[in-house]
Design a protein around this nucleic acid. Structure first.
Lengths: 113, 113
DNA sequence: CCATTCTGTCGGACTTTTCCGACATATCCG
DNA sequence: CGGATATGTCGGAAAAGTCCGACAGAATGG
């Protein structure tokens, strides 16, 4: 009864790390880093077809990493880094542990300067 | 006759973000944060059986996030944060971009409305 | 030695993700 | 209005990931 067809409604609804797990999505974010771009413009540099890029963008939208604004008949995507800072906070917890233990992160990073 | 049966040899060989995508693996890293622990000790707090934990540990080992040292008939796992700093570097690239254009935040918020 | 414990791996079932061609919807321009 | 463009979504097939019970190899200790 409660069996909705939600399997297709959310082709992928992972958390931030799950969204960052795909190299294609990371490349999309990197491309978006230079500035807002339309969906078709994002597809140009990718090794996959448009529907796949559209779904990857939907995943990024679901976790709040990107946002889309309608502009005419185009849809302009832009970056939203807030979930990224959330992921960074998790990383900092781990690295802070390491800092407290060794007290010398530069020894590991070796180029922090 | 090189490694042809490698399909099972590497049940999952993603990059660092791929390894961090699984909540179970993140929890394993968090548990390891308190100090080195044996494999069975890691299984205790987990909601899955030992073979699954073992494969998750294999994934973490493949990307270099953990390392195992034999101690008698036990195997002691300990954390290695270097790949983590690599992931942090990627995040910093994205967040640095955002810091450079903090002034655009209000503009985007307006455009969304 | 031999039984016990610890750990990794295998066979196999199930779920999720990824990708594409095709269709549907929305917007613009003449 | 009607054709063209941009974008999302659907059906479905292929691939990957996840999990478990059962087995195999190493190390310990009596």
């Amino acid at each position: 009864m409660t069996e909705q067809t939600a399997a297709r409604d959310s082709p992928a609804a992972p958390d931030v790390f799950g969204a960052l797990a795909s190299p294609v999505r990371r490349r999309l974010l990197m491309a978006l880093r230079a500035g807002p771009r339309t969906a078709s413009s994002l597809c140009e540099g990718m090794p996959i077809a448009r529907p796949a890029v559209s779904e990857h963008l939907a995943v990024l939208r679901a976790v709040g990493l990107v946002r889309a604004v309608r502009r005419g008949r185009e849809q302009v995507y832009h970056l939203d880094p807030r979930p990224l800072t959330e992921a960074g906070a998790w990383l900092n917890v781990m690295l802070a542990f390491w800092n407290a233990r060794l007290g010398d992160l530069s020894r590991i990073e070796e180029g922090e300067r």
